[in-house]
Structures are given as structure tokens and as C-alpha cells.
Design a protein around this nucleic acid. Structure first.
Lengths: 138, 138
DNA sequence: CTGTGTGCAAACTCTTTGCATAAGT
DNA sequence: ACTTATGCAAAGAGTTTGCACACAG
């Protein structure tokens, strides 16, 4: 059973998200350890069920999107339309293992970050998504 | 009315794709000009209908994926699950204009290309997708 | 108390498969 | 000829919306 800590509650409040039962549960699962996580809505549902709870899949989508809008998560969309939510908010890239659908963070240096193209005039960068698709060497 | 040229036919044959009516039509539309194009399956269907022809949407998906497997196109998946097919096969990045869903190539230098992380041991890079999401400056 | 915000059922969209059929060799 | 490969209808997955209800203020 995950603990819904006070930290979890204040995390949501601070982000301007009402702490409801479902949200607290999802938040507690997302940030229960100290490592960064990459979860799909389906993953999340499975974890919830392992806790003996249940939340409608649509609610999980809504909640994860709300967390994203509130700046608590980052959304990553991959080929195949798979959507992952990433608890790592710092600038980084991703390795995507095509064999098993696993996603892994790639830490990058500020230098690498700044060597990316800047925004065209009159626009600003809203986000940068870098996915390096890797597979077994043949 | 697009011309199905001999060039189009040999392009498909060379790639090991049988030149059927539908494929020739789609190929002719994709490579009719000299610029690179970014099309969604829906875009393609609209163009086909403007030619007074019709091809089932599923066939368009199949065909675009076959062209991709044959190395004639590149597939790009964006947030929201939108799929684009790109006729530009050389290494490059993309600007994605969130306002209107428009996609634009960003030419990059070999230096920029090589400053990207390499594959983890035992794996090889299958592809690199870099999308810079941009929007109006506020 | 009351109005905003929430959670979920149902609907929708985009995409893929299975099979009759047509096309290429 | 004839067998593989194709094209499309129908099914499937993943995601979003609309509305009754609950909760925070």
C-alpha cells in the first residue's frame, strides 16, 4: 500500500491541482521512490490495480494531462502513438528501445542543449523532444 | 491531373514495391514537385480526391508505411499522435508550429548531427527524431 | 449553500488486420 | 496459369468529451 504523504498533498496544492482521492493515489505512485519514472496510462492503471484500487482509464488520462499542464510531468509521444509521462523535468533526451518499448533518459550537457537550433524569428521554443531510437546491433 | 511519369514507375520498382494504380497515384502526388513534403494520410486522401480519384484511407496508410519500409519516406510522430510522412530523407530536425500544426524542416550541420548521443553498448541507432515545438512569443 | 471543477460512461478518431480479389511474373 | 501480394471493410486500440454529481469554498 502506498503512503499518501503530506508531501504529496502539498505538491498538488502548490501546483494548483485539487487533491482528490484519485489524484493523490496517482501522485503517490508517481513519486513514491526517488528515481524518475516513465509511465503510460496503462502502466498506471496496472499499478493502481495492484494497490487494490481502481480508477477509470479516462480519469488517469485526464489526471496525467492535468499534471503535465501544471508542470509536474512531461509528455512524450513516440511512434506507434504510445504516450509516456516522464517525471524528469530537467532538459534531457531519450533512448527508445524498439525491441521492448522501453524508454530511458539520456543526460545531456548544457553545451549539447545549446547546440540545438533556436526558434525562428517571432516565435519561442515551447519544448524540445529528442528521441534516439535504438535496437539490437545486427 | 498529375502525370504518372516513367520516373515514378522506376522509383517504385527500384525500391522493390509493385507499381499498382494506387501506389503510382500516391507516388506521383508525393514527388510531383521538387520540394520536400510533409503529409498526413488525411492530407493525401484530400489530394487524391482533388484529382477526382479515390483510394481507401486504409490503403493510403498501408502504402505510406510500405514506402517508409522501402526507404522512400520517413515517418514522424508528434504529440497528439499525429503522423506525418516526410519526403526529405537526409538528416534533419523539425520545427513544429503548435498553433497550426505545421511542420518544417530544419537543416543541420554534420557537427550538430554528431553532437547527439551515440547508442548504448550492444545497440545501434535506428533513427533520431528531433522535434522543436515552437509557438508565438508572448 | 452553491457554483466550479471532477470522474466516468460513452463516443470518437485514428490505425491495423483478415480475407476475397486482382495483379505481376 | 497461378501464387503472391494487394486493397478495402470491418474491427481494434487508444484517447477525448459531455454531463451528472461531488466537493471546496
Amino acid at each position: 500500500m502506498v503512503q499518501v504523504t503530506l508531501q504529496t498533498q502539498s505538491k498538488l496544492s502548490a501546483a494548483g491541482v485539487r487533491p482528490t482521492r484519485q489524484r493523490l493515489l496517482i501522485a503517490a505512485l508517481l513519486w513514491k521512490g526517488n528515481e524518475c519514472r516513465h509511465v503510460t496510462p496503462e502502466d498506471m492503471r496496472r499499478e493502481i490495480q495492484q494497490e487494490g484500487e481502481d480508477v477509470a482509464l479516462a480519469t488517469i488520462y485526464n489526471t496525467l494531462h492535468q499534471f503535465t499542464k501544471a508542470g509536474l510531468l512531461r509528455e512524450i509521444v513516440l511512434a506507434g502513438g504510445r504516450t509516456y509521462f516522464d517525471t524528469n523535468l530537467s532538459p534531457h533526451f531519450h533512448y527508445y528501445y524498439e525491441e521492448n518499448g522501453h524508454l530511458e533518459d539520456v543526460a545531456i550537457s548544457p553545451k549539447q542543449w545549446h547546440s540545438l537550433p533556436s526558434a525562428p524569428p517571432g516565435t519561442e521554443v515551447k519544448g524540445v523532444d529528442v528521441v534516439i531510437r535504438v535496437g539490437e546491433r545486427k
